[in-house]
Design a protein around this nucleic acid. Structure first.
Lengths: 192, 192, 192, 192
DNA sequence: TATGAATGAGCGTTCATTCAT
DNA sequence: AATGAATGAACGCTCATTCAT
């Protein structure tokens, strides 16, 4: 509607190009010049939208993470039972990552790298609040083991990243059966 | 008479420096010049021990991975029951990573990065054979769920990487209790 | 309106610097950094105009060679007699090299070096076509010895390079008399 | 016979390796380490025989040049007629270069490069004294044109370098007929 | 005499970033 | 808002040379 619209297009192209390039060869093989070329803009244009490369990576991370979490919780409602709620969220997380492998893989790569700064990572975690609340409810109801959120996350959510990586590398094809098995394993690991 | 050739000392210093620098800032922030400086050698010396940077990273990865797996299986015996065997290996894996956080974290970082080439990764996986055999035995004995090795690994072993990263980042202190809880979760996720 | 884009100025400066440095110390003593400095640009700027050092040398060679040949044939016409045509071209070749000793010497240095790739050299030779045609005409008219073009070139044109080198080195000053003598020798060597 | 003998072998191997490598890719592609490897000695050993790379190249040049000239004049006698003497020397020069193409090509490459220092080049020229004397005799006898030695050399000897280069590059195969033609051209260019 | 290990300096090249328009 | 040209700094790596034995 406004003049800004055009810029949104360019920004989106830059974000997409960044994800694409980082995925294919890692951060070190995603130079600004290539990102610019893939997004069909001048290198200088990048700096109209982002402060620098660090900032760009972090913004892209935060955006994708936010989109991911939003999708995961979109149909979630507080009145669901703990188990139903967890399964719903878990399956939507898996769905998001499998439906948009590029973004899913990008998130996985960011999970362990020091390129994402502390603040961005914390902001990413904050979005998970509804899940943590659900876990706390489950713990209170004696349905879920009374463990640290870190442990619950490590065993029920984090494994998806590994499966996705193996899937993307071609080592392992995630079928529907695998997905069901995986959910069962996730739930088994945290349920009381 | 064990003679430590000077070269082995330098090589070890280089390996250590590589792990250290990669851990602190990621691969892209571990230039050869810094690695050399940290290892107290000339940049040119690196190339007496490694073909190039790629080769260096991969060799370091393979060495650490081999050491890690060797440690994990050191006291393992085939006549252990499936559950005892798994717990033994799991706890030694955790112990290795916690005792030498630097190496543990380095392995985590390597898990997802495209800097490690396919061949090195596969060699790393090959070392896990005894664990896979144990799982197969467990499946045959109806003790462990009949799942793909990828799934078993994702839920019972991979979560350790997440906990270690959080620990290293200072988000989360891994206590003995956590470790026991974690083992319970790992076992719960794969046991029938 | 002839607009000299800034870039053409820089490119020309780079070409000039390359010729200059290669002449003074040979290819191995003409590092990109020195070339950049002499041309008053950043090292990185070179790569906006040339793909790499090889490409640069070859482009410079081809340009100078083309300029040289263009000059040599500028006033040549097909209706000249064989002898007049040859003398004209020969003298203009000599004039070009003596008027711009730097370029002349550069061409000499390129004549024998493996730094010039096969393709560039062949392109350089292609430009000589009118001279080869003239020789063929001379052979047909029984004015010139029926020799391979290589032989005709070796004895009538190539010697200029030697004289130029000696001149540049200061061993030998090429006077007008020398030039006339040289032409006589060149003609004597190929005329029937 | 003496201890020196062994070193002569190594020295000779180094000289040969230098010629070989310089020929194949030019000076810039003949690093000391490769030369050492090809001569089956340690890089450090080179410095027992030569002061540094410059010195090495120059010594090799001087040696080959001396050998070449010695061969050329070996059967030459002062009582030969000017024309017979010239033909004899010319043909032996050609023979040397064609019989040992490696050395012949090496000399050609040295002819124009600034890598050979002034002193070495002059020493190379000094060896040609008998030829220059012959020319002077020819001039006195009114058989040869009264030209500067530089001119006589440029037209009667230097062309061989061009033919050899073309031959080595594979552009042009020097046959016996070509050789005879070449001699005729050489003589024609300088004879009165 | 001879070496393999080691090196500082410097190579060709690329990078994230900025400038002039 | 957008750019292509330009850049200083730094990269991975190689070189001629020296050192310890």
């Amino acid at each position: 509607m406004t003049v800004l619209k055009k810029s949104e297009v360019k920004r989106a192209a830059l974000v997409k190009a960044t994800i694409n390039l980082v995925n294919n060869q890692g951060f070190h093989a995603a130079p600004m010049s290539k990102i610019a070329k893939m997004a069909n803009v001048s290198p200088a244009t990048i700096y109209l939208y982002f402060e620098n490369k660090q900032d760009m990576i972090n913004q892209v991370y935060k955006e994708v993470k936010a989109e991911y979490v939003a999708f995961a919780f979109e149909t979630f409602k507080d009145d669901l039972s703990v188990e139903d709620g967890f399964e719903l969220v878990w399956r939507r997380m898996a769905k998001y990552k499998l439906d948009d492998i590029e973004k899913g893989f990008f998130l996985s790569q960011c999970e362990n790298t020091p390129m994402i700064d502390v603040e961005s990572r914390q902001e990413g975690v904050k979005n998970l609040a509804p899940l943590l609340d659900l876990w706390d409810r489950g713990i209170a109801q004696d349905i879920i083991k009374p463990l640290s959120h870190h442990l619950l996350y490590a065993f029920s959510i984090y494994p998806l990243a590994f499966l996705l990586n193996a899937h993307k590398r071609g080592d392992f094809k995630i079928t529907n059966t695998h997905l069901n098995d995986a959910y069962q394993a996730a739930w088994a690991s945290i349920k009381k």
